[in-house]
């Protein structure tokens, strides 16, 4: 396979867990540029675990398998090295950092990533950064005061989710994972966030939307839908799979999966 033909992102036979407990049990996934994939599955099926393993959370252990991104196995890389290659995770539960303003944090993050990806001279001046930040805040209908608030400190559930997408907008990832970004958003907020995500998407990047509701998928249209149960992908298909799940729930898959597994 030549390099150009290789997909952007490939997971091969991934076994991973935490504290000796295996959560992901043989997972395969291929995602290419220009694609939006949805990963669905009931609570506890291992979706966030997968997101953390991809982003490089130090507490998770990988027992077997590979994750290839742009042809490189990223499993040995630190989280910041992965970010500097254009990976991004919108957290399900973003962490608060008291005393650190959004603007100070994001300027350092954006410039670290820009310099690594585009070259040392591509850092933004404070003025350029402010302009960009204002633009993205407006896009997500967020008040400018967010810039001077402390990172995720005292943010409502919805504010946290918007702030994650704001970070994505500024960091311009090539591969973005959105872990339950829709949960905790009311319908207007969901629409704003979805509009933002759609505006950010382009044929050069890929996205993995993790959710356990079908709702968000009527705003962000996936090309592929995967269903995860007990640490494995048990079904993959087109957008119609999400609709089927909406009608039938996960139980039919569980029954089917139990049969094939036995």
């Amino acid at each position: 396979m030549t390099l150009e033909a290789a997909p952007l992102f490939t997971i091969e036979n991934l076994h991973a867990g935490i504290e000796g407990k295996e959560i992901l049990r043989g997972l395969d996934l291929v995602i290419d540029r220009g694609e939006i994939h949805a990963l669905m599955g009931p609570n506890g099926s291992g979706k966030s675990t997968l997101a953390y393993v991809i982003a490089g959370h130090p507490n998770y252990e990988v027992y077997e398998g590979r994750i290839l991104y742009k042809g490189e196995n990223i499993l040995e890389m630190t989280p910041d090295e992965r970010a500097k290659l254009g990976l991004f995770l919108a957290f399900q539960y973003p962490t608060a950092i008291p005393g650190v303003t959004m603007a100070n944090f994001l300027r350092l993050a954006v410039n670290s990533v820009r310099k690594a990806r585009y070259g040392e001279d591509k850092a933004l001046s404070p003025r350029e950064f402010r302009r960009l930040m204002r633009e993205k805040l407006a896009m997500l209908r967020m008040d400018e005061s967010f810039a001077t608030r402390y990172l995720n400190e005292g943010f409502s559930g919805g504010e946290k989710k918007r702030a994650e997408i704001l970070q994505m907008a500024l960091l311009e990832p090539e591969f973005a994972i959105l872990d339950e970004t829709d949960s905790g958003l009311d319908i207007d907020a969901l629409r704003t966030v979805a509009d933002g995500v759609n505006a950010l998407f382009n044929p050069n990047m890929a996205m993995l939307i993790i959710t356990h509701y079908q709702r968000v998928l009527s705003y962000i249209k996936p090309h592929f839908v995967h269903v995860m149960l007990d640490g494995k992908i048990v079904a993959s298909g087109g957008p119609e799979l999400a609709e089927e799940l909406e009608v039938k729930g996960y139980d039919w898959l569980k029954a089917e999966f139990a049969e094939t597994a036995s």
């Binding site: 130090p58 989280p79 350092l108």
Partner: peptide, 15 residues
């Protein structure tokens, strides 16, 4: 907190 470190690192900051 490890979670804080990981969160910041996942945005491109070194440890």
């Amino acid at each position: 907190a490890e979670e804080q470190l990981f969160y910041l690192q996942s945005r491109g900051l070194s440890e």
